[in-house]
Design a protein around this nucleic acid. Structure first.
Length: 591
DNA sequence: CGTCTTTGACCCGCGC
DNA sequence: GCGCGGGTCAAAGACG
């Protein structure tokens, strides 16, 4: 973007990029009576604006108040400035306020100074209501500044002959003015969208670069997080890059449950490979996004990482105290753009990982709360549930994340979803997630970690229930096929994790009950084939060497068509009135 | 000293 | 009514 930036799509009025007041272009910059120098300014501000034409400086003709603005939106905004500079003087007062149309015509016809070129600029309008009104072809295009210089004389000469035309032209200009305003708004909106895309893309790119660099530095030194990781690495699948990326995903914050086998050496050298390090990465990512990226910030995070290690023997982790099993706890601070304060933690039935409860602390009295819990089966997956509506503006990071996820959601859900291998055991997935996911599930890479959000705030569309259960295809237009495949593979994993950990999902209208999103009930273990699918999906993702790049491209592509939807605005902007509850499943694929 | 996390206790709803 | 589970409170401790 040449100008501006960081604007939210919906929040901004016209004036972020452009002057709040309607831009009034002076047709006659040299006019001594005209103190407006906006034309030049405008040319500087918006050299590429497609159309900028206004004439009437009367306050009553402000585009915003123009009653005709809505009815003239279809008027072509043709801009054909003639080279002879003989443009109509449309910025003059009406010399015949009390004259009849005939008087105007006579006066105009008597004028001998009317430039011939005006004939093809002005022609009689056939509107019965205003027979004398001329249709003015105005070229907004815009050599308004340069082409008219030095033509004052001709314009002055025109005054006597074009007064009536001016009167008519004004009417037309009002229409054009409205059109201009509309186009400005549209232009601004598009620019905002583009900004959002760039912002998200840059954030993601920074993240990827950071990970890549860290990977290079630490390659060969990393410790395996668990046996499976070792196995994968030894298998020579060459999954380092994808793994690295997915590691990021890990939980943004695992504090007390760092695997007990993490040695001090591992802590110092394998930051990128441990869940806690993922937290570090996430935090650094945020720091960079805030424009204060620095190595110090990373070091600071490392300190926190150390702190996390110190707490790893928390007595609260009784269920996960098994030294042979990495201990996980809910993230302490998910970097989702908001500030959260932990107010509780509890062991949930059927899940050895405790569930953490957070409150939004960005504003006093903000009712938003979220719950974070690791998936019992795959602890690399974080399940975050949001509930409530923010009563305060959100930081750009949160908005960006929200927009990204929502955009991805639409992309993700633009196609049918179902199991490729009988994944969801009958209609399980269809009955539970799909009805909602078709409108509420999102996949995001804007966050420091890959996330899938199940928006439970919206009532499932009954029409979406009958989606075919025997497919699981997630189209990613414009995305490399390998990524699409990987992403498609990812979804069963994530959804599966959520599903089999949430028995309540089954047969419920999950959109209504926030608690149903608590993926805590492990009483229903995943069917074997589901577990296999999950593993296969994980492997598929990891095996894709181009996953990160593809993901970046995908997100970029996705965001390209993104607009804030109810999903994100509900949860991050508090724009909706419905109680909300989102399940945000974060996976680092750190097996 | 202020902020935040931890964690046991308490409250509430639900099912039996 | 009782037990269970989820959610919240609040005191205590840790940390900067």
């Amino acid at each position: 973007m040449a100008r501006g930036g960081g604007l939210s799509i919906d929040s901004d009025p016209i004036g972020s990029f452009f002057p709040h007041n309607p831009v009034v272009l002076n047709s006659f910059p040299e006019d001594s009576n005209n103190t407006i120098t906006g034309q030049q300014k405008w040319k500087k501000l918006a050299p590429n604006m497609d159309a900028t034409v206004t004439t009437n400086r009367s306050p009553s003709s402000s585009p915003n108040t123009n009653p005709t603005s809505t009815s003239t939106s279809t008027i072509p905004f043709q801009v054909n400035l003639t080279s002879d500079n003989k443009r109509p003087h449309i910025d003059e007062m009406d010399f015949f306020p009390n004259k009849t149309d005939d008087d105007r015509k006579n006066f105009a016809s008597a004028s001998t100074s009317a430039p011939p070129s005006l004939d093809h600029l002005l022609h009689t309008h056939d509107h019965s209501s205003s027979p004398a009104i001329l249709e003015l072809k105005v070229n907004t295009g815009l050599n308004l500044l340069t082409t008219n210089t030095g033509t004052d004389h001709s314009m002055v000469d025109d005054e006597t002959s074009t007064n009536s035309e001016e009167k008519r032209a004004k009417s037309e200009m009002v229409v054009l003015q409205a059109e201009l305003e509309r186009m400005k708004v549209e232009n601004h909106r598009l620019r905002n969208m583009l900004d959002q895309v760039n912002t998200n893309y840059n954030a993601l790119q920074m993240h990827l670069v950071s990970i890549m660099q860290e990977q290079k530095e630490e390659e060969g030194e990393q410790q395996v997080f668990d046996g499976k990781l070792d196995e994968e690495k030894q298998s020579g699948n060459g999954v380092l890059v994808p793994r690295q990326f997915m590691d990021l995903g890990l939980a943004s914050n695992v504090d007390t449950n760092e695997p007990s086998h993490s040695s001090s050496v591992g802590r110092s050298q394998d930051l990128s490979k441990s869940p806690i390090n993922n937290e570090v990465a996430s935090k650094e990512f945020d720091t960079k996004k805030n424009g204060s990226a620095s190595d110090e910030g990373f070091d600071q995070d490392k300190k926190e990482f150390g702190r996390g290690i110190e707490r790893e023997d928390s007595p609260s982790e009784g269920a996960a105290a098994n030294s042979n099993v990495p201990k996980f706890s809910p993230p302490r601070n998910i970097t989702d753009g908001c500030q959260w304060r932990k107010y509780g933690q509890k062991m949930a039935k059927g899940n050895p990982c405790p569930r953490a409860y957070y409150r939004c602390t960005m504003a006093a009295g903000c009712p938003v709360r979220k719950q974070v819990q690791r998936c019992a089966d795959d602890r690399s997956i974080l399940i975050t549930t949001y509930e409530g509506n923010h009563n305060h503006p959100l930081p750009p990071a949160a908005i960006a994340m929200a927009q990204t996820t929502s955009a991805a959601a639409r992309m993700l859900l633009s196609g049918s979803m179902s199991s490729a291998d009988g994944l969801m055991n009958g209609n399980f997935l269809t009955r539970t997630l799909l009805p909602c996911s078709s409108s509420m599930a999102t996949i995001s890479a804007s966050a420091p970690f890959p996330t899938v959000t199940l928006d439970l705030t919206q009532s499932p569309n009954p029409l979406q229930f009958p989606k075919p259960p025997n497919q699981f295809q997630i189209p990613f237009p414009g995305v490399p096929q390998n990524f699409a495949n990987s992403s498609a593979s990812l979804l069963p994993q994530i959804f599966g994790q959520a599903l089999y950990n949430q028995s309540k999902f089954s047969g419920l209208q999950m959109s209504q009950d926030a608690e149903t999103s608590q993926l805590s009930n492990q009483s229903q273990r995943p069917p074997p084939h589901l577990a296999d699918t999950v593993n296969a999906a994980t492997a598929a993702i990891a095996a894709d060497p181009n996953f990160t790049a593809a993901l970046a491209a995908a997100i970029t592509s996705i965001i390209g068509g993104a607009q804030p939807n109810n999903n994100t605005s509900t949860n991050n902007n508090g724009a909706t009135s419905n109680n909300t509850s989102n399940a945000n499943i974060t996976s680092n694929n750190n097996k």
